[in-house]
Protein backbone atom coordinates (compact mmCIF):
# COMPACT_ATOMS: atom_id res chain seq x y z
CA UNK A 1 0.00 0.00 0.00
CA UNK A 2 2.81 2.39 0.86
CA UNK A 3 4.39 1.58 -2.48
CA UNK A 4 1.16 2.52 -4.17
CA UNK A 5 1.04 5.81 -2.28
CA UNK A 6 4.66 6.51 -3.19
CA UNK A 7 4.06 5.80 -6.84
CA UNK A 8 0.93 7.88 -6.84
CA UNK A 9 2.86 10.74 -5.30
CA UNK A 10 5.51 10.24 -7.96
CA UNK A 11 2.90 10.35 -10.69
CA UNK A 12 1.39 13.48 -9.20
CA UNK A 13 4.78 15.14 -9.07
CA UNK A 14 5.34 14.28 -12.71
CA UNK A 15 2.06 15.87 -13.65
CA UNK A 16 3.00 19.01 -11.81
CA UNK A 17 6.45 19.02 -13.37
CA UNK A 18 4.92 18.53 -16.76
CA UNK A 19 2.82 21.61 -16.20
CA UNK A 20 6.01 23.52 -15.43
CA UNK A 21 4.50 25.01 -12.30
CA UNK A 22 6.57 24.66 -9.16
CA UNK A 23 4.45 22.44 -6.93
CA UNK A 24 4.15 24.70 -3.95
CA UNK A 25 5.55 27.92 -5.25
CA UNK A 26 2.97 30.16 -6.76
CA UNK A 27 3.59 33.82 -6.31
CA UNK A 28 0.69 36.22 -6.29
CA UNK A 29 2.45 39.16 -7.90
CA UNK A 30 1.24 40.33 -11.32
CA UNK A 31 3.68 39.59 -14.12
CA UNK A 32 6.48 42.01 -14.90
CA UNK A 33 5.37 44.90 -17.16
CA UNK A 34 6.90 43.53 -20.34
CA UNK A 35 6.31 39.83 -19.63
CA UNK A 36 3.04 39.79 -21.54
CA UNK A 37 3.25 43.15 -23.30
CA UNK A 38 4.85 43.81 -26.63
CA UNK A 39 7.10 46.74 -27.42
CA UNK A 40 5.37 49.59 -29.25
CA UNK A 41 7.87 49.57 -32.09
CA UNK A 42 7.20 46.46 -34.24
CA UNK A 43 10.81 46.36 -35.47
CA UNK A 44 12.15 46.28 -31.91
CA UNK A 45 9.51 43.74 -30.87
CA UNK A 46 10.51 41.49 -33.77
CA UNK A 47 14.12 41.74 -32.64
CA UNK A 48 13.15 40.88 -29.06
CA UNK A 49 10.92 38.01 -30.20
CA UNK A 50 13.67 36.49 -32.34
CA UNK A 51 16.02 36.60 -29.36
CA UNK A 52 13.48 35.24 -26.86
CA UNK A 53 12.83 32.23 -29.09
CA UNK A 54 16.48 31.24 -28.63
CA UNK A 55 16.78 31.71 -24.87
CA UNK A 56 16.07 28.81 -22.59
CA UNK A 57 13.65 29.09 -19.71
CA UNK A 58 15.63 28.04 -16.64
CA UNK A 59 12.68 26.93 -14.55
CA UNK A 60 11.01 24.84 -17.24
CA UNK A 61 11.78 21.39 -18.58
CA UNK A 62 12.77 22.32 -22.09
CA UNK A 63 11.16 25.46 -23.39
CA UNK A 64 12.21 28.82 -24.73
CA UNK A 65 11.27 31.84 -22.62
CA UNK A 66 8.99 32.89 -25.46
CA UNK A 67 6.90 29.71 -24.96
CA UNK A 68 6.51 29.58 -21.22
CA UNK A 69 4.07 30.70 -18.57
CA UNK A 70 6.62 30.27 -15.76
CA UNK A 71 6.95 33.57 -13.83
CA UNK A 72 10.70 33.58 -14.24
CA UNK A 73 10.35 33.24 -18.02
CA UNK A 74 8.06 36.28 -17.85
CA UNK A 75 10.70 38.19 -15.90
CA UNK A 76 13.33 37.24 -18.44
CA UNK A 77 11.08 38.41 -21.28
CA UNK A 78 10.73 41.69 -19.40
CA UNK A 79 14.52 41.95 -19.18
CA UNK A 80 14.96 41.24 -22.88
CA UNK A 81 12.26 43.69 -23.98
CA UNK A 82 13.43 46.55 -21.76
CA UNK A 83 17.01 46.07 -22.86
CA UNK A 84 16.06 45.96 -26.53
CA UNK A 85 13.95 49.08 -26.01
CA UNK A 86 16.96 50.75 -24.39
CA UNK A 87 18.87 50.14 -27.61
CA UNK A 88 20.93 47.08 -26.73
CA UNK A 89 21.75 44.63 -29.50
CA UNK A 90 20.24 41.11 -29.18
CA UNK A 91 23.63 39.42 -29.26
CA UNK A 92 24.86 41.69 -26.45
CA UNK A 93 21.89 40.59 -24.34
CA UNK A 94 22.60 36.95 -25.13
CA UNK A 95 26.22 37.44 -24.06
CA UNK A 96 25.03 39.18 -20.90
CA UNK A 97 22.85 36.18 -20.01
CA UNK A 98 25.51 33.63 -20.96
CA UNK A 99 27.90 35.43 -18.59
CA UNK A 100 25.42 34.72 -15.80
CA UNK A 101 23.99 31.29 -16.63
CA UNK A 102 26.57 29.76 -18.91
CA UNK A 103 25.90 28.39 -22.40
CA UNK A 104 22.90 26.48 -21.09
CA UNK A 105 20.69 29.56 -21.34
CA UNK A 106 21.20 29.92 -25.09
CA UNK A 107 19.57 27.52 -27.56
CA UNK A 108 21.90 28.95 -30.19
CA UNK A 109 25.20 27.09 -29.80
CA UNK A 110 28.00 29.45 -28.84
CA UNK A 111 31.26 29.65 -30.75
CA UNK A 112 33.40 27.70 -28.28
CA UNK A 113 35.73 24.75 -28.82
CA UNK A 114 33.31 22.37 -27.13
CA UNK A 115 30.70 23.16 -29.79
CA UNK A 116 32.99 22.85 -32.80
CA UNK A 117 32.31 19.13 -33.37
CA UNK A 118 28.62 20.00 -33.62
CA UNK A 119 29.29 22.49 -36.40
CA UNK A 120 31.76 20.19 -38.14
CA UNK A 121 29.19 17.36 -38.14
CA UNK A 122 27.34 18.21 -41.40
CA UNK A 123 30.62 18.57 -43.28
CA UNK A 124 31.90 15.34 -41.76
CA UNK A 125 28.73 13.51 -42.78
CA UNK A 126 28.94 14.74 -46.38
CA UNK A 127 32.63 13.79 -46.64
CA UNK A 128 31.93 10.34 -45.18
CA UNK A 129 29.09 9.79 -47.64
CA UNK A 130 31.30 10.85 -50.55
CA UNK A 131 34.08 8.49 -49.42
CA UNK A 132 31.71 5.54 -49.01
CA UNK A 133 30.07 6.11 -52.37
CA UNK A 134 33.25 6.75 -54.32
CA UNK A 135 33.70 4.13 -56.99
CA UNK A 136 30.28 2.58 -56.39
CA UNK A 137 28.65 4.04 -59.45
CA UNK A 138 29.09 2.58 -62.86
CA UNK A 139 31.48 4.80 -64.75
CA UNK A 140 30.94 3.69 -68.30
CA UNK A 141 27.28 3.88 -69.29
CA UNK A 142 27.88 1.53 -72.26
CA UNK A 143 29.11 -1.27 -70.02
CA UNK A 144 26.02 -3.13 -68.86
CA UNK A 145 27.95 -4.58 -65.95
CA UNK A 146 26.71 -8.13 -66.32
Amino acid sequence: MTRFVKQFAGALLLVLLALAHPATAQDLLPPAPYAYKQLEDPALEAKAQALMETLRCLKCQSQAISDSDAPMAGDMRHQVRTRIAAGEEPEAIRTWLVERYGDYVSYAPQNKPIMWPLFAAPLFILVMAALLLRGRFRRDPKDTGK
Partner: peptide, 15 residues
Protein backbone atom coordinates in the same frame (compact mmCIF):
# COMPACT_ATOMS: atom_id res chain seq x y z
CA UNK B 1 12.88 42.23 -6.49
CA UNK B 2 9.54 42.22 -8.32
CA UNK B 3 10.88 41.44 -11.79
CA UNK B 4 13.73 39.08 -10.79
CA UNK B 5 16.20 41.78 -11.82
CA UNK B 6 18.87 40.98 -9.22
CA UNK B 7 18.15 37.27 -9.49
CA UNK B 8 18.90 37.25 -13.21
CA UNK B 9 21.74 39.73 -12.65
CA UNK B 10 23.66 37.26 -10.50
CA UNK B 11 22.75 34.12 -12.43
CA UNK B 12 20.35 32.64 -9.90
CA UNK B 13 17.64 30.43 -11.35
CA UNK B 14 15.40 29.62 -8.41
CA UNK B 15 14.53 30.13 -4.75
Amino acid sequence: DDVSEVQVGIGSSGV
